[in-house]
Amino acid sequence: MRPNAPVIYFTLGTEFGVESGDLYERVLAGLRALPVNLLMTVGSQIDPAEFGPQPDNVHIAQYVAQDEVLPHCDVVVSHGGSGSVMGALAHGLPTLLVPIGADQPMNAKRCEELGAGLKLDAATATPAEVRAALTELLAVPSYRQEAERLRTELAALPGPDHAAALLEQIARIR
């Protein structure tokens, strides 16, 4: 671990990791040499040992509880799945998105439009592009500020109790 270095969490979620081709390797190559602490999760179908020895600032695991990790992070790098995006925004974290499929391209586009993140093409992103994008996210305060603004907005939204009350109201009417 590098003392006082930013903490980066990199995940491709629980469904898309094995379908990502060499995306793990390209992103890892882009982040590994940066002066950061990197936590990368690969899911249950991939053995972290497949990535070989790593420097002390890189830890690769099959799974971590995202809600336990995010409060300690500075940036999230992900595929742009709903859980990863909402987790990052709920913690006010800027995000680097490399969407693979499903709703991910739309999520990535919207995060970029809102100024809370950057997106790269998962099929063509190079380690140098990953490195440059993450460096920008760490260096430009507006990404963090926009992510924090969105965190405040999300926190102000009504929660599950409100949704349950609305459902009960609909059920009574019918």
Results as ranks from 00 to 15, higher is better:
34 L>N: 01
148 E>K: 11
100 I>C: 02
17 G>Y: 05
72 H>S: 09
113 E>V: 05
160 P>V: 15
103 D>N: 11
137 L>K: 02
85 V>W: 01
90 A>V: 01
10 F>K: 02
13 G>I: 01
33 A>S: 09
104 Q>Y: 04
50 E>V: 14
108 A>Y: 03
170 I>V: 14
93 L>T: 00
54 Q>S: 01
78 S>V: 05
88 A>V: 09
41 T>L: 06
105 P>Q: 08
88 A>H: 02
89 L>T: 06
57 N>L: 07
143 Y>A: 02
11 T>Q: 11
32 R>L: 02
78 S>E: 01
128 A>D: 09
37 N>K: 06
23 L>F: 09
105 P>L: 13
59 H>P: 00
93 L>S: 02
79 H>A: 13
95 T>L: 14
19 E>Y: 14
31 L>T: 07
108 A>F: 07
98 V>H: 03
134 L>F: 05
47 D>F: 09
120 L>I: 05
115 G>H: 02
117 G>H: 01
105 P>Y: 05
20 S>T: 10
48 P>M: 05
126 T>F: 13
110 R>E: 13
5 A>G: 09
97 L>Y: 03
45 Q>E: 12
96 L>N: 05
132 A>T: 12
96 L>Q: 04
35 P>K: 08
120 L>D: 03
141 P>R: 11
152 T>V: 15
125 A>I: 08
97 L>T: 04
75 V>S: 00
44 S>P: 08
78 S>C: 14
150 L>G: 03
66 Q>M: 15
53 P>L: 12
143 Y>N: 03
173 I>C: 08
60 I>R: 01
3 P>M: 11
61 A>W: 05
35 P>G: 04
168 E>K: 15
167 L>K: 01
82 S>M: 14
142 S>T: 12
12 L>S: 07
147 A>W: 05
42 V>Q: 00
167 L>S: 04
171 A>E: 13
79 H>I: 10
151 R>A: 14
12 L>H: 06
37 N>H: 07
92 G>S: 08
76 V>R: 02
32 R>P: 00
174 R>N: 10
141 P>F: 10
2 R>I: 15
155 A>D: 12
138 L>P: 03
124 T>R: 13
146 E>H: 15
163 A>N: 05
67 D>P: 05
132 A>C: 06
42 V>F: 06
111 C>R: 00
35 P>F: 05
148 E>I: 09
47 D>C: 10
48 P>E: 03
77 V>D: 00
130 V>Y: 04
94 P>K: 05
71 P>Q: 08
3 P>A: 15
114 L>D: 07
1 M>L: 15
109 K>D: 11
17 G>D: 07
96 L>G: 07
154 L>E: 04
157 L>W: 12
28 L>V: 04
3 P>R: 12
122 A>K: 06
56 D>P: 14
110 R>N: 03
137 L>Q: 03
58 V>S: 02
136 E>D: 10
105 P>D: 09
141 P>D: 14
170 I>T: 11
36 V>T: 10
39 L>K: 08
83 G>E: 04
137 L>T: 01
157 L>I: 12
56 D>A: 15
155 A>E: 11
18 V>H: 12
128 A>F: 06
88 A>C: 09
80 G>Q: 00
140 V>M: 09
117 G>P: 02
118 L>F: 08
126 T>Q: 10
